[in-house]
Design a protein around this nucleic acid. Structure first.
Lengths: 337, 337
DNA sequence: CTGTTAGCGCTTTCAA
DNA sequence: TTGAAAGCGCTAACAG
C-alpha cells in the first residue's frame, strides 16, 4: 500500500547519506565493507526496491532493450527471442518483448512505446522495407539493429540468406524430379517471402528449366496456418507435384489441407517448409524444411546492439548473414529414407 | 544523437509554458483550440517524444502492466499473452512480457524487474505454489492477478478447472476400453500437472476401477517436447494401451517417439494431450486434446488487473474458473471418426 | 571513504 | 485559459 521504501529511507535507517546508498547500489567497491553491510541490511529490512524510472530519467535512458518480432505465435520468433533474452541477461540487460503481428501500425505503436520508455536500443524484425520510423528513432538517439533482415552498411543487421534458402528448397524438389511446383508466400511487402521466391526461381533457371512452366506462385495475406489451410484449393488447381511454403507454420496448415483432400504426401505432392520449427518433425508427415539458426540470430543481434548501446570500443556496423540448411524428412522423400 | 525534444523545448517553440504543453498532453479539452494547435504543431516539428520514465517517476507508477508466463515456447501461453495484450491495449495500457521458463529464480528476477519498473500491476502464471514473492509485491503496492492458477478469495485469479480436464481425458480413454493408461506429467510443484493427474485418478475411481491397476504415472523434469520424446522408453515399459500427457507439446514429443518405436496410434496406444494448441490438429496423428480458452483466459485476467489497478468502482476480488472441453481426434479413435 | 547538492522531464496545484 | 514553481527518486560531481 505504502509502496516500497526509497533510497532516502534506507539512508536514514542505516545512518548514512543518500549518496552512499547510491554508491552501494552502483559502485559497491567504493564503499567500505562495514558501511556497505549496514546499508544492505537496511535495504533488506525496509524492503527497498530500486526505482528504475527515476534512474532512467536521471540517465536519460534505461538500460533495457526492446525487441519487436513479426509473429509471437510462430515458434521461429520465440526461439529467436530466447536467444536475444539470453545474450541480454548475460550482460545484465532486460528485454521488452513486443509483437507487431505483421502489422505496420502495431510496429509503429511498439516503436513509439519503446522510444517513450527511453530504452537503450531496439531490435526489430521489420514488417516491410520502409525504414522511415527506424531512421527517425536512430536520428533521435536510439540504437537500432535489424533482425532477420539484411541492412545497408550504415547500420548493424543480422539475417539469413533467404535467396539461398529458396534455392536449397527448390533444388531439392527438382532433384527429386518434381516439375510442377507451387510456391506459397505472403504479399510482396514481406521480404523473407519475396527472397525465398526469388531463390526458388533461380534454382529453376540454374537447372535449365523455365520458371514460368515449372513454378507457380500463390499469395496468401498472412503467413499463418489458417491461411495455408485455406489456400489448398487454390494450390491444387494446377495439379502440382510439389509445394514449397514460405514457412513451416503455413506448411503445417497446407499439410492438413492436403491430407483432408485425400492426397498423399509426398507421393502425390511433395511438401517443404521453412524455419525447421520443433513441430515440423512431429507433423503428420515429418516436414522437410530449411533450417535457420534462430537462437543464434537472436544472440548475435543482441550482442551487436549491446555493443552499440554501450559504445563498445572498436564497434563498427556490421551485417551478419547466416546460411540456411536443408533438412530432409519424409514430406519430400517418403518413408524410404 | 541529441535525443528527442522535451516538453520544455516544445513550450518555447510554441511560445507557451510547460504547464500548457503538459495540459495538451494529458487534458487537451482544457486548452483553447488555438493554443492546442500551436503546441501540437511544435511537437511534430521538433519530433517530441513523451518521456515515460519522467511521468512514471512523477506519478509513482507507470501505466504498463507486467505478464510473466511459464513457457513462451508453448503456443498455449503465447495465445494467452495475445489475449492479455488485446485487452490491455484496448484500454490504453502496454504489456511487458516476461518468460520464466518454469524457473523459480527467473520468475523472481522478472518480478523484481517489473517492480523496479513500477508497473501498475502484474499478471503471473506462477512456477509453483509458493506465493511469497507475489505477496510481498502486493504488500508494497503492486496489484497482482494470478493467471492459469486458482487463487484464494483475497485476490483475483483466472484459471481453468484442471481436475475436470483430467477427468475428461481419462473418462474418454476408459470409455474407449483402455485399461492400462500412463499419465505423463511434470514434477509435483507444477500444479496444472498435479491437478490433471488428480482428475485422471478420479475418473478411474468414478468408473469403478482401481487407479493402482489402471493408471501409472511417469514424471518428466520439464513439460516440453524433448522430455516427452525421451520418456517414451519409460512409458512403454508397462506396455500401456493409452497415454495421457500433461500438455500438447509433450504429447507431440511422445507421438514422435511412439512412431519411431514402430507403434500405431491409436491402435497400439491411444494418445491424448492438453491445451489443444494449433499444432495438435496438424500432428502426425491428429491429436485428441483438452481445449482451454487460452485467449479468453488472458483477456479476463487483464481486465481484472486493470480494474484493480485503476481502482474501478465496485471492484471485488474474484476467482474466475473456466471449464475445459474434450476435442476428439484420431489419436484416440482412429481414422474411422 | 562519505556527505551535499543540483538537476533529469514531467505533472500538478495554485495564482494570475 | 494559462503561467509559475515545487518536487517525484535517483545519480554524479564535488567537497570534505
Amino acid at each position: 500500500m505504502a509502496g516500497p521504501a526509497g533510497i532516502r529511507e534506507v539512508a536514514a535507517h542505516a545512518g548514512v547519506s543518500v549518496g552512499t546508498v547510491s554508491n552501494v547500489l552502483n559502485r559497491p567497491a567504493q564503499v567500505s565493507e562495514g558501511t556497505r553491510g549496514k546499508v544492505e541490511r537496511a535495504m533488506v529490512e525496509l524492503g527497498f526496491v530500486r526505482n528504475s524510472p527515476a534512474g532512467a530519467l536521471r540517465a536519460g535512458r534505461s538500460t533495457s532493450l526492446g525487441l519487436v518480432v513479426l509473429d509471437i505465435g510462430n515458434p521461429f520468433f520465440t526461439e529467436m527471442a530466447r536467444g536475444v533474452e539470453q545474450a541480454a541477461s548475460e550482460r545484465g540487460h532486460a528485454v521488452l518483448l513486443c509483437n507487431s503481428d505483421g502489422s505496420r501500425s502495431r510496429q509503429g505503436i511498439h516503436l513509439t512505446f519503446l522510444e517513450e520508455q527511453r530504452v537503450g536500443g531496439v531490435l526489430v524484425t521489420p514488417v516491410d522495407s520502409d525504414t522511415t520510423h527506424l531512421d527517425l528513432l536512430r536520428a533521435r538517439g536510439t540504437a537500432v539493429v535489424l533482425l532477420d533482415e539484411p541492412g545497408r552498411d550504415d547500420r548493424c543487421s543480422v539475417a539469413v540468406d533467404d535467396v539461398c534458402g529458396g534455392e536449397l528448397a527448390i533444388g531439392h524438389l527438382l532433384q527429386l524430379g518434381r516439375r510442377n511446383i507451387v510456391y506459397i508466400g505472403g504479399p510482396a511487402s514481406i521480404r523473407q517471402s519475396t527472397d525465398r521466391g526469388e531463390g526458388a526461381a533461380r534454382a529453376v533457371v540454374a537447372a535449365g528449366l523455365s520458371p514460368r512452366r515449372v513454378l507457380r506462385r500463390v499469395v496468401i495475406p498472412a503467413l499463418n496456418g489458417g491461411e495455408g489451410h485455406q489456400a489448398v484449393p487454390a494450390i491444387l488447381e494446377g495439379r502440382p507435384d510439389a509445394v514449397f511454403c514460405a514457412n513451416d507454420v503455413v506448411a503445417l496448415g497446407v499439410l492438413r489441407g492436403l491430407i483432408e483432400a485425400g492426397l498423399s504426401v509426398p507421393d502425390d505432392v511433395a511438401l517443404i517448409g521453412y524455419d525447421d520449427i520443433e513441430f515440423a518433425a512431429t507433423a503428420a508427415v515429418p516436414l522437410t524444411s530449411i533450417r535457420q539458426p534462430a537462437q543464434q540470430l537472436g544472440r548475435t543481434a543482441a550482442s551487436l546492439l549491446l555493443d552499440e548501446m554501450t559504445d563498445a570500443p572498436g564497434h563498427v556496423h556490421q551485417q551478419v548473414i547466416f546460411r540456411p540448411e536443408l533438412i530432409v524428412r519424409r514430406s519430400t522423400v517418403g518413408p524410404a529414407s
